[in-house]
Design a protein around this nucleic acid. Structure first.
Lengths: 151, 151
DNA sequence: ATTGCTGCAAAACGTTTGCACCTAT
DNA sequence: ATAGGTGCAAACGTTTTGCAGCAAT
């Protein structure tokens, strides 16, 4: 599914740098926004290949990087060695709780977290840039848990 | 340098599982506690090899895993694809600010963070296990920054 | 005696890179 | 025309694994 508003943001971002506007880049944008949840670059590559795309792995990796620079996607690290992305287009800031039993990822937005990163940065004489806050926990109701995986 | 108190904790932990007590494991413990800061498994392997140890990479990786299970070390992920460890023996809980310019890691312990992970877990009907909170920022005084690397 | 641990090398994994060809500008 | 992008395969850096011999129990 295409999203013309996101495409316009990406187009402007590409023009602003010396980046070219190519069909492949928009193909990756569309696939990424279609994905519901958190995905690794390789996941998206496989999905696109299965949908008969002629895209290359290299293009997917590079384009996801571009999309996170223009803040259409955000990059996440959940403690394994995979870089994950999720759409940040029209989404509020949030953090993640990861179930250590099944890998399920629960998003939360807690007011108390909001100002902390910038406050603490200031206190240490740094200019705040970004942060990552992950909680690892076990679901109290295992039945909610066992049959679901978002890895 | 050897630390007999930490060795005793490790020894008990090993006995409690069906793990054997071997000289190699204590060699890794000693090297890890000697390291001042955050290190990757391979860093420690190289250091030990340079000190003429006969240890193998596999043993270092596996032993660090054991040491983090018995909480003598804690495992950290700073957003690159390296698993880092640091001593948690007799150290207070803390979080990290990483300078995006030079990679310097500053530790901080902020009271406001303390109860958050367990509180939020409860609120979402999970049993809290662990958390990770990293801030990425830029040093306001670049001179403090440029000449230092802790990667 | 048994079972787990070791060192080694090879494999695995996600990711990046070099390159020849192609395409947006 | 030219700088930059693409697809492919090979290389990369970190971590894991298979295995034969070894050592703790």
């Amino acid at each position: 599914m295409r999203n013309s508003q996101a495409e316009e943001i990406f187009r402007s971002f590409l023009k602003a740098g010396k980046n070219r506007i190519t069909p492949e880049r928009f193909e990756v944008l569309d696939a990424a926004l279609d994905y519901d949840g958190h995905f690794g670059a390789d996941d998206l590559y496989i999905i696109m290949k299965n949908a008969n795309s002629r895209i290359s792995r290299a293009t997917v990796y590079k384009t996801l990087e571009l999309l996170s620079h223009c803040e259409l996607l955000s990059k996440r690290h959940f403690g394994d060695h995979i870089t994950r992305y999720e759409s940040s287009f029209k989404r509020q800031v949030h953090d993640h709780l990861i179930c250590v039993d099944c890998g399920r990822i629960v998003e939360f937005a807690d007011q108390r977290v909001k100002k902390l990163p910038a406050d603490i940065s200031e206190g240490l004489d740094f200019n705040f840039e970004s942060y990552s806050f992950n909680i690892f926990a076990r679901c109290k109701e295992p039945k909610k848990c066992k049959h679901f995986r978002d890895k």
